[in-house]
Amino acid sequence: MSKPSLEKVYQWLEEVKDPEIPVLSLVDLGVITNVTISDKVRIEMTPTFVGCPAIDYMKNDIIETLNKHGQEAEVDINFKKSWSSDLISEKGKIALKKFGLAPPPDSKLFTDLEILENAECPRCSKTNTELRNPFGPTLCRAIFYCNDCKEAFEQFKPV
């Protein structure tokens, strides 16, 4: 098997999705921090949250996907480059919204819970919303309520 290009590897990694948000690839999520290609493909990744229970699942998924493309792969999970919600790509943010999750606002703006008060509702795109809980069903989500739609929605937390 010949050595693949970096571009090709990233293309394959696009096939690997976040197990909890199946519309978002790990590349768009921003958790792939480095790729080097030598005798095998070496991938460095970092978790969204340190306690994310999906990280081992993602790691195995990467290895399986690359094996499927005839590549030997090794995945190293580390904190050399710290993940932030700002690393989610524009394409990823659009996918999140379509999935029904409000994309995270710029994490640098986030200094106070009040900043988080009015997220944009992924259904009606308006901000007549309120924060119900900064903690949600997974570590990376907060719970909001849209006063116009009269329904709860989740936001991918800025961090």
């Binding site: 994310c52 229970p53 903690f135 949600g136 570590l139």
Partner: peptide
């Protein structure tokens, strides 16, 4: 909300210990 908050913080802290 508090049930979820304490449960989430539990998950974070145990993850930090790991």
């Amino acid at each position: 909300e508090e049930d979820i908050a304490f449960s989430s913080m539990a998950q974070d802290k145990v993850g930090h210990s790991l």
